[in-house]
Write a protein that binds this DNA or RNA. Structure first.
Lengths: 367, 367
DNA sequence: CTGTTAGCGCCTTCAG
DNA sequence: CTGAAGGCGCTAACAG
């Protein structure tokens, strides 16, 4: 192994111009100024009641005067605390996510509320795009500089994160919080996707649909959603296998448009009498809508269509969104993940948030 | 001053379950294993040629075997290096931005390419939402943990950042890179907004427009854009004051819709014979379009309209974008900011990227 | 109530 | 070519 020397250029005159040459203030400096020992300074600044009130006062004043900032010497503090096994919060949460999620409203809505919750508490976010190409953990995480990790990704990548995390020394290891995908030993923040399946199925059944098709593998935990669909059928005493046809899209087809067309054609072949399509995501719903029209099944006249997530509106003639969908509480998911991360609970916890049905114009009784 | 004890819960059994109890490996551990002094280990791992080749080999093997990770003990290294005034890169870039920018395509496009460039180089991003409500610098920045800061904000907030930065001890202070807004002593990455003004004005003049109205204070550095407009007129030997009417919107009006309506009414009153409107942003353009229609001046029949930024499409009847605009290289801006930050140049540098005209359907010759 | 000491892990200088 | 010692700034245990 090789420790690469990766030096930073020293702050040059360009930045020094007009900038004060503030030195690094240490406890010793304050001690010298007040005329006490540095450990007394340490105790005074921590509010140790054993220090005489007057001394504490003088020390605090000196610290303020010198501009002492405990944050500056966090490194030394962490080093020292390691001796006794204590860990101090750095007010920093790591967030790992794949590149693909940076595009699209889905992730953005969670991300923004996550950032807001973090910033509100005066924490910071260590963001890293985490792909299989970059499987390593950020140095700050390895160093134990973060209070917790939040990871949003597919199971395989999450497993890689856990493996990497297992390799960091136990005292520096921090809790992991995943979004949507449960991982053993990690906290989980998710939406009730089973309920999402039940609600969408209930809506279509209430409208009178009896042959419904869906794609089983497109979004996070699609299987949970499909299970919910089947559970709703079962709860009504109906045969899931008869009323719901779920097929998987072929992930080997790189082009999304083609992939959707291919699975749609298979679905329609398997259930030519289907009257409703459950799309696993709004984005896909929009595309399915066009594909269905091309196949002589315009939505909603000849086919009802439901999205999921309620993130990407399908504008109708009036400009408003016409897509019936299941709304996920994305903002709340981001917030809950942030709050859980800042709590950094010693024991893994699971938070499941409710979803809600949004009935709009793409669903109607079958003709 | 008070150093608040902000302890983290120790990693509990929940996380330890199935997790190896990896200890923190230090140079001393390797030294013990190989039977040499820890300073020899240090030298060997750094590739110091003075160490005997065989010894180096054995030390490296031992390090690998124990799973030594230099990142784990960065804190101690930084502490020690402080003695000699050296600074080591943490592969970490701070990014400060206001909440408002997290919504909308404008920021997102820059942000994603910024993150991608950073991640590609195996760096990380320390993200903080920086508002006037949270004027302090992240502890990691104060501690000198980042290699550079990138800040995207309005001049007042940027000034606050510089003030806060001036207060951090000189050896821990890192270079600042701003986007769009030049600050003395900081690097700048921006688009050629003067050119944006010239190009949009040139386009309208070429179409035959002679009375053009615009808003002077809505986007970043609007004044530069307006100056460009005037420069184009001057370059053609035309009187800027006669052909261009620029007014400021009233920032005290909280509702954006109302604010735009108010300035539009003033503009139309000041130049009733105007045939074209230059909107400072695409988002505003979309709203101006509706406001103009309401005022009996439909775009483009009775009024030509240009956006700026080319971020928010205005869908036409065919679904495609119909808004003529000036495209800013937002992805490139993000990338350049990232690269500049990772270079962390000692001397401030300025990067100005070109913009380009996008002619679409909202501009046509005056009738 | 306050001072002294040792040590967290590393790097560097000085000895040998 | 390798070892020993000192110190970065902090905290905690031990003296007084």
């Amino acid at each position: 192994m090789m420790i690469t020397a990766n030096r930073l250029p020293a702050s040059g005159p360009g930045y020094a111009a007009g900038m004060p040459n503030t030195p690094v203030v240490t406890l010793q400096h304050i001690a010298d100024l007040v005329g006490v020992h540095k450990s007394t300074v340490h105790r005074a600044l921590r509010g140790d009641p054993r220090v005489e009130a007057g001394t504490t006062e003088r020390i605090r004043a000196a610290a303020a005067q010198l501009g002492y900032d405990p944050a500056v010497n966090q490194g030394a503090r962490a080093l020292s605390l390691r001796k006794t096994g204590k860990v101090e919060s750095n007010q920093l949460i790591a967030l790992l996510f794949p590149v693909v999620f940076t595009r699209g409203a889905y992730f953005q809505r969670m991300y923004v509320s996550f950032m807001e919750a973090i910033s509100l508490a005066r924490y910071d976010v260590l963001a890293r795009i985490h792909d299989t190409a970059v499987p390593s953990l950020p140095p700050s995480v390895v160093r134990g500089d973060v209070d917790a990790l939040v990871a949003l990704n597919h199971p395989k990548e999450l497993a890689a994160v856990q493996t990497a995390l297992a390799a960091v020394p136990a005292p520096l290891r921090r809790p992991l919080i995943t979004l949507f995908t449960p991982m053993p030993g990690a906290s989980l923040v998710t939406a009730d996707l089973h309920q999402a399946g039940r609600l969408s199925m209930a809506h279509l059944l209430d409208l009178g649909h009896r042959r419904i098709i869906t794609v089983a593998n497109m979004a996070f935990r699609s299987e949970e959603r499909v299970e919910g669909c089947r559970a709703e059928l079962a709860a009504r005493g109906m045969d899931p296998d008869r009323h719901l046809v779920a097929l998987e899209s072929d992930k080997r087809i790189p082009d999304e448009e083609q992939r959707l067309a291919e699975v749609l054609d298979r679905l329609l072949a398997a259930a030519p009498d289907a009257t409703a399509l459950l799309a696993p995501q709004d984005q896909a719903a929009q595309k399915f809508m066009r594909l269905l029209a091309e196949r002589g099944r315009p939505v909603p006249e000849r086919m009802s269509l439901m999205g999921c997530d309620d993130t990407d509106p399908v504008p109708g003639p009036g400009g408003g969104n016409i897509l019936s969908s299941i709304a996920l509480p994305l903002e709340q998911l981001g917030r809950e993940a942030a709050n859980l991360a800042m709590e950094a609970p010693a024991e893994p916890r699971t938070i499941v948030l409710p979803v809600s049905l949004r009935v709009r114009a793409t669903t109607r009784p079958p003709t």
